[in-house]
């Protein structure tokens, strides 16, 4: 079975940004550098947007500029739509 058909292995892993909340000091550099990837939190820090696209050059730039080195990239599965319900498949 081609791996692409199985949501569990649909992607060999796109990179997604992640901010360590313990390290973030809320400089706002990442928010201004890569606004599609990061958003402010209620306590004036930053976090990765849950709906962020796969990490691109802008996200990589934000990581390079973070003075706290708080931005890391994790391999995550594409947010592939869940397997269609059986009735839709038939």
């Amino acid at each position: 079975m081609p791996s692409g058909d199985d949501p569990a292995t649909a992607s060999d892993g796109t990179l997604r940004a992640h901010i360590d909340p313990e390290l973030c000091v809320g400089s706002g550099i990442c928010l201004a550098t890569a606004p599609r990837h990061f958003e402010p939190t209620m306590d004036a820090r930053s976090r990765a947007r849950p709906d962020a696209p796969p990490a691109d050059d802008r996200a990589q730039d934000a990581a390079a500029l973070c003075p706290m080195e708080a931005i890391h990239f994790v391999r995550a599965r594409e947010p592939t739509p869940r397997t269609a319900p059986p009735e839709a498949r038939s």
Binding site: G26, S27, G28, I29, L31, A32, T33, D43, A44, L65, P67, M68
Partner: peptide
């Protein structure tokens, strides 16, 4: 104390730390 003494955004003081 989320002060902005070092600025905010891309021009946030590079020497802050």
């Amino acid at each position: 104390n989320p002060h902005l003494s070092f600025g905010y955004g891309v021009h946030h003081c590079v020497g802050a730390q």
